[in-house]
Amino acid sequence: MKITLVTVGKIKEKFYTDAIGEYSKRLSRYCKLEIIQVPDEKTPDSAGEAVERQIREKEGERILSSIKDGAYMIALAIDGENLDSVQLSEKINGLGIGGVSQIVFVIGGSLGLSDAVLKRADYRLSFSKMTFPHQLMRVILLEQVYRSYRIINGEPYHK
């Protein structure tokens, strides 16, 4: 299985980069991992809804251009479905058994995802109703994908 993360913006803090590197290394024994970073747009401090929508649309075009036809896309969205770790592992495993060869997880920028990206999504996943920094979400998502593979393979993991 190929797991792809499409994310908006660059990682700036070394501790996030280190954590992403560690989970990428751990995941390498279970799947092929690809991380695609698309550029973010600068958001003016006094941006209104129209400007924010334009920014989401520009970032959304970049996201969608990075996703291959046929890939199963999971958008991280606050209004998505909440799963526990076992349910996420069942989702990933079920997709693989069903013949899906690539799962693309999409993490939007600070303003979220465009309507076009949300429409393209095959599934919406929410980690919480809370808002997290999108850089931190990369680490959280990679940890949960790693945990999912541990569960799928019947290997121990912390509950």
Rank of each mutant, 00 (worst) to 15 (best):
K129E: 14
S65R: 15
E143S: 12
G112M: 07
R120M: 06
A121G: 03
G112N: 06
D79N: 14
S128E: 04
Q102A: 08
L136R: 12
K159M: 07
Y16E: 06
E49C: 07
C31L: 14
K32S: 13
P156L: 05
I20F: 03
F105N: 01
V139Q: 06
I35G: 09
D18P: 02
A121F: 02
G96R: 13
K2Q: 15
I3W: 03
I36V: 15
I152C: 10
L111F: 02
L88G: 08
I151C: 07
K2R: 15
I67P: 04
T7A: 15
F127R: 05
Q102R: 13
V100Q: 13
S114F: 05
K2W: 07
I55F: 01
K2F: 11
P39R: 09
M73H: 00
I97E: 14
E52W: 01
Y72Q: 10
I97R: 15
L33E: 09
A116Y: 05
G98F: 12
I11Y: 01
V117Y: 05
L141N: 01
R120C: 10
A19C: 03
I103D: 00
G70F: 00
D115N: 14
Y157S: 06
Y123G: 10
L111D: 00
E155H: 09
D115T: 14
L141P: 01
G108V: 00
D84P: 01
K12Q: 09
G70E: 03
P156W: 05
P133A: 14
I92D: 00
K12F: 10
E34G: 11
P156Y: 08
A75W: 01
L142Y: 07
R56I: 03
K10M: 11
L27T: 12
P44W: 10
I20A: 01
S85V: 09
L64C: 04
F105H: 00
Q144E: 05
L27N: 08
D69M: 10
L125C: 11
E81Y: 10
S65M: 09
D115A: 15
K2N: 14
I67H: 06
K159P: 04
